[in-house]
Design a protein around this nucleic acid. Structure first.
Length: 516
RNA sequence: CCCGGGGUAGCUCAAUGGUUAGAGCGGCGGUUUCAUAAGCCGUAGGUUACCGGUUCGAGUCCGGUCUCCGGGACCA
């Protein structure tokens, strides 16, 4: 049994989660559930990024103390993740005392090592991005990402982290080849390093909403410097060395492609400076677009149908969490940008979840109830077509595993649904309804038994992606307590003779396009 | 301007230099009645962006052109 520590980016709390944010958590959750299925000891971390001027401003707008505002937002985020069946083990908040302590300890270590100096920080600053902007990045004198927010002229004495000292070591880390996924992002990061890094400002005098700098009450930590540290806070740094030794380094930091630089260059350098190991891997996903427009906080929508697509709570309420999860993971290739629409959602869900998988379950359970009294009696008589079905399912788990390991859920799901189709084809070819009429009970038992085995394996392999559906399939097959373990997806005759199936509500109620 | 990745069926994408360029969805046709107006089978659809080259053989390799998308630099 091996350890698997996976993290997602912590989220700014200045707005509620949108579908793009949800995508990231769903990918991470599917990965976490997959590793649990394999038997790994999983630690799945996510949480909220509560500092930054942004948050303080937003709270002030609402006439709330920042802390009270953050408490409120925590509830909203957790509610969303719970609705989407995101099975995190720990939800961290950067305002937690333990996190402040970790940040300050890192700061002290770096300062003791001589990796921190004071310097003058000046330039145009976009509060929306919490980043300095160069003239060339501007459009009409405004930040392109936050055109409504005026830029601030800034000049203050800050603490700087001597990032440049670690350029060579970080470069070597990236060149190792398996540090960044997808690999083409590694080239981008290398070119950033090649073109010369700068030491970075890691404190702010202009705000008080942040982690205080040790021995300097006038400054707080720059929000990004603080945010990255959450990963080791949650792993027990600095007060629980044995826990830290067990969990660190993280096996996978799952992030959006826009923050690769922070995670692939700055963060490893910070860790190196603190004499900690860098993470094993950083995986950068693409963006989710809705009908071609980026799903961001600021996306303005008028069409109420688009409004639902953008809001994961509404969308999960409308189609259910499993369909939403399936759709995003099936439709978006990991690392690439994806584009979603109602048309695609309806086609995917109705086709795969309803007509293919759901209907398969329905026909198998119905026939077993009608013709076998609801009882699967055991092996039954073999038929020539059995071999074809077995050929599809033998090795299915092993074909899917490397794809799941690499977060390539879209390919893994395609492979799994091919097997579902093959099971439908097997049933057509053996025509169990005819066997029933002809009184060939042994053959009938064989066909339905094999189909149930197939469904059992499908349910197991799909469980990381659609945990709710998986449970419901197994319940209808009469094996709700089946151990959720990958090994038994490699076994064929697993369902005990005498198992009683139970028809229930359809797995996925197809979406009526007329009623959208 | 530099670096990187693309351009293949109506759509989304596959194809270690090697038979006739494949799959899903959509279209069309057939078929089944166990099942969620479900399933299954078959079929049409291609100048692989363009031009040239290497090769017995190029979607794949080389040169050039057009175009799209990332990343970065500069003009600040």
């Amino acid at each position: 049994m091996s350890k698997y520590f996976i993290t997602t980016a912590i989220d700014y709390v200045n707005s509620v989660p949108h579908v793009g944010t949800s995508y990231e958590k769903i990918v991470a959750d599917a990965a976490a559930r997959w590793r649990r299925l394999k038997g790994d000891e999983v630690f799945f971390l996510m949480g909220n990024d509560e500092h930054s001027q942004n948050v303080a401003d937003k709270a002030a707008q609402l006439k709330l103390e920042p802390r009270a505002y953050c408490d409120q937002m925590e509830g909203k985020f957790r509610e969303t993740w719970s609705k989407l069946a995101v099975s995190y083990d720990r939800f961290i908040r950067t305002t937690e005392p333990a996190h402040r302590a970790a940040c300050q300890e890192i700061f002290r270590r770096l300062r003791a090592k001589g990796d921190i100096r004071k310097g003058l920080y000046k330039g145009l600053y976009c509060v929306g991005c919490e980043a300095r902007k160069t003239e060339s990045e501007l459009q009409n004198g405004r930040c392109p990402n936050h055109p409504a927010t005026p830029l601030k002229e800034m000049e203050e004495e800050n603490y700087f982290f001597l990032l440049t000292r670690y350029a060579d070591r970080v470069k070597a880390l990236i060149q190792r080849g398996d540090f960044i996924d997808p690999p083409f992002r590694a080239n981008e990061m290398l070119s950033v390093i090649e073109q010369g890094l700068e030491d970075i400002s890691i404190s702010r005098r202009s705000t008080t909403w942040g982690v205080p700098i040790p021995d300097d009450p006038d400054q707080v930590m720059y929000v990004w410097f603080d945010a990255l540290i959450n990963y080791i806070t949650a792993a027990g740094f600095p007060d629980d060395p044995s826990r830290l030794a067990r969990l660190w380094p993280a096996d996978c930091h799952l992030i959006g492609k826009d923050i690769t630089r922070f995670h692939c260059i700055i963060w490893p350098a910070m860790l190196m400076a603190a004499d900690l190991e860098p993470p094993r891997r950083v995986a950068a996903h693409g963006f989710v677009y809705i009908d071609g427009a980026k799903a961001s906080k600021s996306l303005e929508v008028k069409d109420p149908r688009i409004e639902i697509l953008k809001d994961p709570m509404k969308l999960a309420g409308r189609v259910g969490p499993d369909a939403l999860r399936y759709f995003l993971l099936r439709e978006v290739a990991f690392g690439q940008d994806g584009d979603i629409s109602w048309e695609k959602l309806v086609t995917r869900s109705n086709g795969d979840l309803g007509k293919n998988l759901g209907n398969l379950l329905s026909r198998v359970v119905s026939m077993a109830e009608r013709s076998l009294g609801g009882v699967l009696p055991g092996p039954g008589a073999p038929l020539p077509k059995d071999a074809e079905l077995r050929a599809v399912f033998d090795g299915l788990a092993d074909r899917v595993a490397p794809l799941m390991d690499r977060l390539e859920f879209h390919s893994a799901l395609a492979e799994i649904f091919k097997a579902s189709s093959a099971t439908n084809a097997y049933i057509d070819a053996t025509a169990p309804w005819k066997l029933a009429k002809e009184g060939k009970v042994d053959e009938l038992a064989g066909v339905l038994g094999n189909s149930a085995e197939a469904l059992r394996i499908l349910a197991l392999l799909l469980s990381p992606v659609v945990p709710g559906f998986s449970d419901r399939i197994l319940a209808q097959l009469g094996i709700p307590d089946l151990p959720r373990r990958l090994e038994i997806a490699r076994e064929w005759r697993y369902i005990r003779p005498g198992t009683r199936v139970r028809k229930a509500e359809v797995l996925f109620q197809q979406i009526d396009v007329e009623q959208l």
